[in-house]
Design a protein around this nucleic acid. Structure first.
Length: 584
RNA sequence: CGGGGCGUAGCGCAGCUUGGUAGCGCAUCUGCUUUGGGAGCAGAGGGCCGCAGGUUCGAAUCCUGUCGCCCCGACCA
């Protein structure tokens, strides 16, 4: 491709609304432009990158036997009523009506559609297993789109859905996808970590997220440096810590005027916050009350509580509700002597034999709380937030907390959707069975941003070859020099004949402009032709990453480039240089 | 949903406090010079100052409303 005939609108200045590096660089390098908040146009350079990521995904999916399909973006309300998600999804799902006043949703995901399809098409165990995938535009009306293409309202996603006849098959399908995902992200140049995760709105049994470690990530994960434990912080656990010591004693009221918070009480009584037991009253599924106990210096993760309760909604009780249960005002409540309310104790308070908590009386707390003695019956669960340094649940070594970008998510769905939508088949014994499902997503557009987050420097993007819009940039510096142009033309044709994707900067620009643009757009390899070295029969071959340069005789430069690029592909885990496909 | 900030030329901004009909840098166009790290000189084009009302002889500027964009936060007894 000749630069002058392509469209690469680079800009020097950063638009005021770009905040993170990938967003700034995508804008400046002419990959994307914004339409409105959360909606972006991919310009030719951006689209090439996207297509490359998609092709890497296709190849790995196909290797595992998944079959590509394409489902509608618009889906009828009825399907979502059937699965129950018309009501549980909330306002992030975009809904609209057609002229007959019929409700539709702009698909945020496709479990309903695919399961409906399978329910109609599959009758026998002989047809299973199946794994269908698509690469398609999804819509989620995010509260706050941000970081450019990283969290947008319209985005491109690869979603795959597996259907198995038994648990063993489902397990294999799941593992196949995990393996494929590792391959995909490695080949895209943004190796991802698989971490245990919450199933969220998808429902189902278990799930793992694929995270690219990066400080701009929105997700927090907990990982162990010593073993392979890694989990999303909404799911992470720590080893049963906090065996609280202290002398057992009788319950004793203490006067704590106006001390309504943990910090007030611990300061007033001159004890560590960890000596307190926080008593939280939650309301879930509209009117069910549950009392949660957690150590004073810890917070609970509401997501964990929702999971534990299988609740569809959850909120803290208001002052009135608290008064009704404890007959005491907010800030002075405790679990002792409370009857008729379900009590859940977090692991952090299980060992408490002399804790401090509210006395259920205004301006008073109690000392000497012994959980097992003073609370008639309680359940135990892991609800607290894991902090840096907490012991690993597997090996007890200190845990680390890191930020990451969620680029993929795999779910073991079980039979939630097959049951709701009637995806059954007859087994060998002629019995009707529910298909066991898995669903597997990759945020394609987000992956593009993640790749840039981990592959850039001061000057601009440093694309991994596998996803670079072009593999090599040909840069003759003097556009008036006939000889140089002739040589450039020769190299250009020759590179193309080698099957390489080459961008030829044929613009009549000064060298400085060309160099700056080249660094910005980040093509991984560059051939530079200058007057002086050409006179000696030499050209320069430069590697964008690290700016290593070498002089190479002109008659060898194409071959050397091809070798370098071949090595680069192999380093990323490819067996060979992929063939050019489609528009590329 | 709450809080904060911002809408002035394609992009980045100044001007607004103290009303008088708009300016700077980059980009664009023309010409000459320049040509291995975002060139120099000379000239040119381009803005209903987000939109709608109001105050005023007069509004980018003051007031009200509205739309859009960005950032932060999201309850812990």
């Amino acid at each position: 491709m000749r630069w002058s005939q392509f469209f690469i609108p680079t800009i020097k200045e950063v638009p005021a609304d770009a905040d993170v590096i990938s967003h700034k660089l995508m804008y400046r390098a002419g990959l994307i432009r914004k339409l409105v908040s959360g909606f972006y146009t991919y310009l030719p350079m951006g689209l090439r990158v996207l297509s490359k990521i998609e092709n890497i995904i296709r190849k790995e999916m196909n290797k595992k036997g998944a079959l590509e399909i394409l489902m509608p973006t618009l889906q009828p309300r009825e399907l979502w009523e059937t699965s129950g998600r018309w009501h549980t999804m909330g306002p992030e799902m975009m809904r609209l009506k057609n002229r007959q006043d019929r409700d539709f949703v702009l698909g945020p995901t496709h479990e309903e559609v695919i399961t409906d399809l399978i329910a109609r098409e599959i009758n026998s165990y002989r047809q299973l297993p199946l794994n269908f995938y698509q690469i398609q535009t999804k819509f989620r009306d995010e509260i706050r789109p941000r970081f450019g293409v990283m969290r947008s309202r319209e985005f491109i996603m690869k979603d795959a859905y597996s259907f198995d006849k038994d648990a063993e098959g489902a397990k294999k399908s799941y593992q196949d996808m995990v393996d494929a995902y590792q391959q995909i992200f490695q080949k895209c140049g943004c190796s991802a970590l698989a971490v245990e995760a919450d199933t969220g709105i998808m429902g189902g049994e278990s799930s793992a997220e694929f995270m690219v470690p990066s400080d701009t990530g929105e997700e927090e994960m907990v990982c162990c440096e010593h073993c392979d434990y890694a989990a999303n912080s909404e799911k992470a656990e720590s080893h049963g810590l906090f065996d609280q010591t202290g002398d057992e004693g009788a319950l004793e009221e203490v006067h704590t005027p106006n001390c309504t918070s943990v910090s007030d009480v611990s300061a007033f009584l001159k004890v560590q916050p960890s000596c307190l037991v926080k008593t939280l009253l939650y309301v879930h599924d509209t009117d069910k009350k549950v009392l949660v106990l957690v150590r004073g210096d810890r917070n609970i993760v509401e997501m964990k509580l929702i999971q534990y309760l299988h609740a569809s909604d959850l909120r803290l009780a208001d002052e009135k509700e608290i008064e009704e249960v404890f007959h005491a005002p907010v800030g002075f409540v405790g679990p002792q002597g409370i009857m008729g309310v379900r009590v859940i104790a977090d692991m952090s308070v299980l060992g408490v034999v002399s804790g401090i908590t509210g006395a259920n009386k205004k301006d008073y707390h109690v000392k000497g709380l012994n959980l097992k003695r003073d609370v008639p019956s309680f359940e135990q669960a892991h609800l607290h937030q894991v902090l840096q340094g907490d012991p690993c649940p597997k090996c007890r070594k200190p845990l680390q907390i890191k930020k990451g970008i969620e680029v993929g998510h795999v779910f073991n769905l079980g039979t939630k959707y097959s049951k709701a939508l009637g995806a059954t088949f007859l087994d060998q014994a002629g019995q009707s069975q529910l298909a066991i499902m898995g669903c597997f997503g990759i945020g394609v557009s987000r992956t593009m941003a993640a790749i840039i987050e981990v592959n850039h420097d001061e000057q601009g993007i440093v694309w991994p070859v596998s996803v670079a819009p072009f593999e090599i940039l040909l840069m003759p510096l003097d556009s008036d020099d006939k000889n140089m142009l002739k040589e450039a033309e020769r190299i250009y044709t020759s590179l193309q004949e080698q099957g390489l994707q080459v961008l030829w900067d044929d613009r009549d620009e000064r060298a400085g402009v060309k160099f700056k643009d080249a660094e910005l757009i980040g093509i991984p390899y560059m051939i530079i032709l200058g007057k002086k070295s050409m006179a000696k029969g030499l050209g320069e071959l430069e590697i964008r990453r690290g700016h290593q340069k070498q002089d190479v005789p002109l008659d060898q430069i194409v071959e050397r480039s091809r070798d370098l690029i071949g090595h680069a592909y192999r380093d990323l885990g490819f067996l060979d240089v992929p063939q050019v496909q489609g528009a590329l």
